[in-house]
């Protein structure tokens, strides 16, 4: 083995020993090296747990310190990070919460929201395509152009169906106090849309079909496909009219909120 390959193998073994307390230590190590390795193991875990605590402040506040520490330690062990930014340890934490707090879906909803807000906060600074610019760009559109219209949304904006009144829960968890915490469960699932207003991440609860439409268009669907989806199968003309109105209303909202940053050609 070349010296470079040997160094690489030793680094891989060292990191394995940090990640896995059962990994064997090199034969020529003494208690002194084992004690030093214990410090690195402790540093590794506390750094990841600390990063999760800082990203998921509200989730931590909601479930309590002890439960959060257990969940974050479990996540750090099952999802060892690979990327250069420690923030990445938060990837998939909502799924970990869904698994660990299965009877409390609001925990996973809250973790998803905190993660998404963080992603949106550091996304690219792009000027929104406002209603005026949109009107100008689409002024000459015929029916076919409208049906084929595709939108480019703010990078990292995201939406999903939630079972939690995140508006109430988010506000209630603003402060460290756990007094007067409302029951956050919704009677029916709703959609939650996350985006950035200027530099400020924000979110809104809305009808589930609005999330379906947003996600579909974000994935490249045309405006006409949204109208068709809303109209349902074999629609009456009135239903098509209603569907077009519904899609138009959503488009107006997205433009007003600055979610649209361009038209896809």
């Amino acid at each position: 083995m070349s010296e470079a390959a040997d160094l690489k193998a030793r680094q891989e073994a060292f990191l394995r020993a940090i990640l896995d307390e059962g990994a064997p230590l090199p034969e020529d190590w003494t208690n002194r090296q084992a004690a030093g390795l214990a410090v690195y193991r402790g540093n590794y875990r506390s750094a990841l747990v600390g990063a999760l605590e800082s990203t998921f402040e509200r989730t931590a506040r909601y479930v309590g310190e002890s439960a959060f520490k257990q969940a974050s330690a479990h996540h750090a062990i099952t999802h060892p990070p690979a990327g250069w930014t420690i923030d990445e340890v938060g990837i998939g934490f909502d799924a970990t919460c869904a698994q660990l707090f299965a009877k409390n879906p609001e925990v996973a909803d809250l973790a998803w929201l905190e993660w998404t807000m963080l992603q949106v906060a550091t996304g690219p600074d792009v000027e929104p395509f406002g209603p005026g610019a949109f009107a100008e760009a689409t002024g000459g559109f015929g029916d076919e152009d409208w049906m084929e219209l595709r939108l480019e949304f703010q990078a990292r904006s995201s939406a999903r169906i939630v079972e939690t009144n995140l508006t109430i829960l988010w506000k209630a968890l603003e402060e460290a106090s756990d007094l007067d915490r409302p029951d956050p469960r919704l009677a029916e699932p709703q959609g939650c849309l996350v985006w950035r207003e200027g530099e400020r991440p924000t979110f809104q609860l809305l009808a589930p079909d609005a999330v379906t439409a947003f996600t579909a268009m974000q994935d490249g669907a045309a405006y006409g496909e949204i109208v068709t989806t809303f109209a349902g199968s074999d629609p009456e003309p009135e239903q098509v009219q209603d569907a077009a109105m519904r899609a138009g209303a959503l488009l107006g909202e997205w433009l007003k909120e600055g979610l649209v940053v361009g038209l896809k050609t």
Binding site: K8, Q11, E12, L15, I18, L19, Y40, N43, Y44, A47, L48, A51, P80, P81, A82, G83, W84, I86, V89
Partner: peptide, 9 residues
């Protein structure tokens, strides 16, 4: 880090 993991330490 190695190619597989990052210790962030």
């Amino acid at each position: 880090r190695t190619s597989a993991h990052n210790s962030h330490d």
